[in-house]
């Protein structure tokens, strides 16, 4: 093989939780690739499996609560799904980092932020505490925390939400990971701070050449930060493609519904059109299209399993109406799903 392996490749990932004694799939065959210096936005409503996908990639979905039941996760070409915990610990925070949504609760309240950032450096790089703190100071400067040297010795409660999120970013970046998973890193912040943090992330990705999986339920921020978009619904990717294509011509009825639900700033008093209906619960997933119960374009053929098929060169959707996928392909998908 001549080409360098993708920073992250996920193939047919299947993650299950035990609900009332039965294993139910929360992530149902998700596949995507992510190159260095690329940002893929993972978009979808609450509960569609975005966080579970990210936590699975981090190896943080573990029995007895849940399990990665199938698929492959390749981190810089290395198969990591099913690695023993000891080896996972070596990769987490070093080759792959993660930022979480809740900046208020994601930092340890009784440890200085400096020590929390330094911790990863001590563990993975074998630095002394003093050297790690010195590096942490440089990281604070890089994420633009003012008076880095003094703030290092402070505790999370002394920081604002946006500053805490910068601490989280510094922490995730400390060991220069190849892959950064950002799970709604700006959702809890107000709009101006959100824009600053997004700008910072884009800047850092550029500088370190990271691969970024940016999770959000807000299509509005996607255009600002992502190269490609994957839209998730009920544990599956239902549409995937370059940002420009998806914004210009969303193919899947669910993606179109998401666009309709974006509050538009130029029309201030417009009612927010949330998508009517609910995501099917994990223990009542239909065999056919999971969006069928809410889809305005539902018709014959929707009750069959849907495949991700091309609507353009790099643009795919999981809807036979949008793609004209044949019953034969759908049958192939059914075989895959029961595998």
């Amino acid at each position: 093989m001549m080409t360098a392996p993708a920073a992250l490749a996920v193939e047919d990932l299947r993650t299950e939780f035990r609900i009332a004694g039965t294993w139910r799939s929360a992530v149902r065959g998700v596949s995507f690739g992510l190159a260095r210096n690329e940002t893929l936005a993972l978009v979808g409503e609450s509960g569609c499996g975005k966080s579970v996908t990210a936590l699975s990639i981090m190896g943080l979905v573990q029995p007895p609560l849940g399990r990665v039941a199938g698929g492959r996760i390749l981190l810089e070409g290395q198969e990591v799904a099913g690695l023993p915990e000891k080896q996972w610990e070596k990769l987490r925070g070093d080759r792959i980092g993660m930022i979480f949504q809740e900046p208020m609760t994601s930092l340890n309240p009784v440890m200085t932020v400096g020590d929390q950032v330094a911790e990863a450096l001590v563990i993975h790089k074998g630095l002394s505490r003093a050297a790690a703190l010195e590096k942490a100071r440089a990281l604070f400067e890089e994420v633009k925390i003012p008076s880095a040297a003094t703030r290092l010795r402070e505790y999370p409660h002394q920081f604002s939400g946006g500053m805490r999120q910068r601490v989280m970013i510094a922490m995730a970046l400390a060991c220069e990971p190849a892959v950064l998973l950002a799970d709604e890193p700006t959702t809890a912040l107000d709009v101006t701070i959100q824009a600053q943090v997004l700008g910072l992330l884009a800047d850092l990705r550029e500088r370190h050449g990271m691969a970024v999986l940016f999770i959000t339920h807000n299509l509005g921020v996607v255009a600002q930060i992502a190269d490609r978009v994957a839209v998730m619904y009920a544990g599956q990717i239902v549409e995937e493609g370059p940002v420009a294509n998806i914004f210009a011509a969303p193919a899947h009825p669910y993606t179109r519904a998401l666009f309709a639900a974006i509050p538009r700033l130029d029309q201030p008093h417009q009612a927010l059109s949330a998508i009517p209906g609910r995501v099917p619960p994990l223990d009542a997933m239909p065999v056919g299209c999971a969006f069928a119960s809410r889809c305005p374009e539902k018709r014959a053929g929707c009750e069959a399993p849907q495949v991700l098929a091309h609507v353009g060169a790099a643009h795919r959707a999981r809807c036979h109406v949008a793609t004209g996928a044949t019953a034969f392909e759908a049958a192939g998908a059914a075989v895959q799903d029961t595998r």
């Binding site: 981090m58 943080l60 915990e85 996972w88 610990e89 070596k90 990769l91 987490r92 925070g93 070093d94 980092g97 993660m98 979480f100 809740e102 609760t105 994601s106 930092l107 340890n108 309240p109 009784v110 440890m111 911790e119 990863a120 563990i123 993975h124 989280m168 922490m171 995730a172």
Partner: peptide
């Protein structure tokens, strides 16, 4: 708590997660 998940995402070994991050907070 969320900070335990953060510590694990940093690659902190489970033993240290328990005795440093978990216990320091639980001792309050």
């Amino acid at each position: 708590e969320d900070y335990i998940r953060t510590a694990r995402a940093k690659g902190v070994p489970w033993r240290r997660v328990v005795w440093v991050h978990g216990l320091r907070n639980a001792s309050l």
